[in-house]
Design a protein around this nucleic acid. Sequence first.
DNA 1: ATGTATGCAAAGTATTTGCACAATC
DNA 2: GATTGTGCAAATACTTTGCATACAT
Lengths: 140, 140
Amino acid sequence: MEKILKEHKIKITQGRLILISILSNSENALSVDEINEQLKNRGESLDLSTIYRNLELFTNKGIINKFDLGDGKYNYVMNHEEHKHILECAVCHKEVEIDCPMQQVEQLIRNKTGFTLSEDTHLDLKFQGVCRDCTIKKHK
Amino acid sequence: MEKILKEHKIKITQGRLILISILSNSENALSVDEINEQLKNRGESLDLSTIYRNLELFTNKGIINKFDLGDGKYNYVMNHEEHKHILECAVCHKEVEIDCPMQQVEQLIRNKTGFTLSEDTHLDLKFQGVCRDCTIKKHK
DNA sequence: ATGTATGCAAAGTATTTGCACAATC
DNA sequence: GATTGTGCAAATACTTTGCATACAT
C-alpha cells in the first residue's frame, strides 16, 4: 500500500494507507458510505472531509477513478487500466488522446447486471469521430 | 413533440412539451441549469421540482437518458439509440440484456474532447463476461 | 521546525418531497 | 368531475470549505 503512495509522492498517513487498502481489496467501485462502513469494520474511522479530500487527491493522481453508477453519487475504484486511446478526426485528422472509457462501462454493467466483463473486451476498440471544429463547419 | 408523449401515454401539458422540445433540439446532454436557461430564452418558466419530476418520468419511460459527465450532476439527452446488447456468461451461458452503454461513452467523450463519435462506432461491440454466480464459484 | 493532513462545524449544490391549488382528459 | 400536474417551501443527500489542532518528515 505504501508503494502506491510513494510512487505518487503522496505523504504517507495512517488514513491514506487504510483508504488505499480498502479500495485495493474491492473489485467493485465503492461509495463513500461503503468506504465508511469498511472503516468501521476495521475498527478505524476517518472524517468524511478527510475521505473526500483523499479520494480527490487519489483521483487527480490517477490512482483511482470515480464514476457515477446511476445512483446520484460517486463510486471510487482503483484505476487498473491506465491505457489511452487515440481519437482521430475523420475530417481534419487532428488527434486527441482519451483515457479508456471502458472501465466506467465495466462498472456500470457490473452494477446493473452483476456481470464482470472479460479484461480484453475493449482491446480492439476503435473510435471514429469528428472534432468540434469540423462538426461546426459541416453545419454551415 | 406531442407524438412522443402520446406514444408513452403521458398526459400532455405545456411544460412537458417545452421540455421535450428543448431536449430534442440539443445534441448535447443538458444539465437542469442549462434546461432552465433555455426555458428563459424562450420566455417560459417551470419550477425546478416540475423539471426534475418530468425528467425522471421521461427517464423511466426511456424517452431520455441521464448521465453524470463527471461534473457531479446529471445531464439529460434524448435516448436516440434504444438498442440492446446481449451479455452471455462465458461459464454458465446465462444471458442478460443491457441497454447499449455507448451513448454515455459518446457523451463523455463529446464533453471532454469535443469529438462527436460516428454513429456506427459501437455496432459490432461484443461484450464477453462472467455472471455474478459464476464469479463467486470461481473464487471458492 | 516546517509544511501538510485531519477533524469539526458550517456552507454549498443538486435533487426530492409534502401539500394546496390548478390544469388536463 | 376525477385525476394528475404544478409551484412553493422545506427537507434531504452528497460534497466542499475554513479554520484550529495534530501529525509526518
